[in-house]
Nucleic acid binder design. Structure first.
Length: 316
RNA sequence: CCCGCCUUAGCUCAGUCUGGCCAGAGCAGCCGGCUGUAGACCGGCUGGUCCCCCGUUCGAAUCGGGGAGGCGGGACCA
């Protein structure tokens, strides 16, 4: 694969890369290493899959990809007992693999309790201010009031993971960027390299607002095909605009990376069938009014169900 | 360790002083109507261990005692 093609894959659908220059030199490495950490979760949702999609791009572009099943992080974020979390982690690994991700899977607690790691954590703690650690968790932590000490330990460990997994490129949603910036500044102070980082966009919730566990405004692997159709049909989808449009985002970030062509079936009354090769064509027709929201929804739910099918079977 | 304040619907809160009317409001949610989607708009509906336990009382979210959790302050600083 050409250098240009590889770079194109890495950059595709990325919200930002810090920094482009660093990526440029990384790509010339023999086998650069990339990673994403996930708190094991009972609900793998489309937001997770946006980053998985990116990891698949990276594999294709010649990166060695590691997925951290961050059981201790989930524990620190008050997601339950460590035993329960590890069961969920195993289920998550199977879902990711079924989704087509070829990566090495590492359980966080396997190395995060070692002497060297813990001492490095203390060294990083000494060189990091409370405000900085707390701020880095704004988009990540379970509850923003009643802040627990665990919530500032969390980003320190996430930074260290990057060093201990020997990662060149840290991947995550834009909600992770402040933690990655903390890693970029903090790791060199204790003798490690600053990682390059790549951030994927955060999907808009199905109701047009921010995705939130309390609102359940998302699609996840526990949902049947019919549930997905229903959820998409009920989704916020203002005609003619890409702004805050979850259905278009799903097409862009999850459907088109998996399908070269997407067909929209319509009766003659509404213009007849159309085929789209690539998301820009969809965006163009949607903005012009050529493509009606309902037709978009029907088509997206059909293709999205195709994308989810293998992982869904391995969900439990 | 001491003192003060707080805890009521998914969320923000009212009600507590002075016990009694079905425990309320806004927002969120759900269901319809209007749209060839959703939203907006209109109409309707749902929603509660009043933090827990014990007591007083005919009757306790409300009063008394005990406890838990949260927040703030004080003290301690060998």
């Amino acid at each position: 694969m050409s250098r240009e093609k590889r770079l194109e894959l890495v950059r595709r659908n990325a919200e930002e890369i810090v920094t482009e220059g660093e990526l440029d030199s990384l790509i010339d490495d023999g086998s650069p290493r990339a990673y994403t950490g996930y708190e094991p979760s009972g609900t793998i949702h489309l937001g997770h899959l946006v980053t998985v999609e990116k990891l698949k791009d990276l594999v294709e572009a010649g990166f060695d990809v590691t997925v951290l099943l961050a059981d201790l992080h989930a524990y620190l974020n008050e997601k339950g007992d460590l035993d329960e979390i590890e069961e969920v982690a195993d289920m998550n690994r199977r879902a990711f693999e079924a989704y087509g991700l070829e990566a090495e899977f590492v359980l966080g607690s396997e190395f995060q309790l070692n002497d060297g790691y813990v001492m490095d954590m203390h060294r990083l703690a000494v060189s990091t201010t409370m405000a900085r650690a707390q701020r880095s968790m704004d988009e990540v932590s379970r509850s923003r009031d009643d802040i627990h000490v665990s919530q500032v330990v969390y980003p320190l460990m996430q930074a260290l993971d990057i060093a201990y997994l020997d990662v060149d490129l840290a991947v995550g949603g834009t909600d992770q960027r402040k933690i990655h910036m903390l890693a970029r500044e903090g790791l060199p102070r204790i003798g490690y390299d600053a990682p390059t980082s790549l951030h994927t966009p955060i999907l808009t919730g199905l109701d047009g607002s921010k995705m939130s566990s309390s609102k359940q405004n998302w699609i996840d692997l526990s949902m049947s095909e019919e549930d997905v159709e229903g959820a998409l049909n009920n989704a916020y989808c203002p005609a003619g605009t890409e702004t805050d449009n979850p259905v278009l985002e799903i097409a862009k970030y999850l459907v088109f990376p998996e399908f070269e062509e997407v067909e929209v079936k319509r009766t003659e009354k509404y213009g007849g069938d159309v085929e789209y090769r690539g998301y820009p064509e969809v965006a163009r027709d949607f903005e012009s009014g050529e493509l009606h929201p309902l037709d978009l929804k029907k088509s997206v739910s059909k293709y999205l169900n195709g994308v989810l099918a293998p992982a869904r079977e391995n969900f439990r």
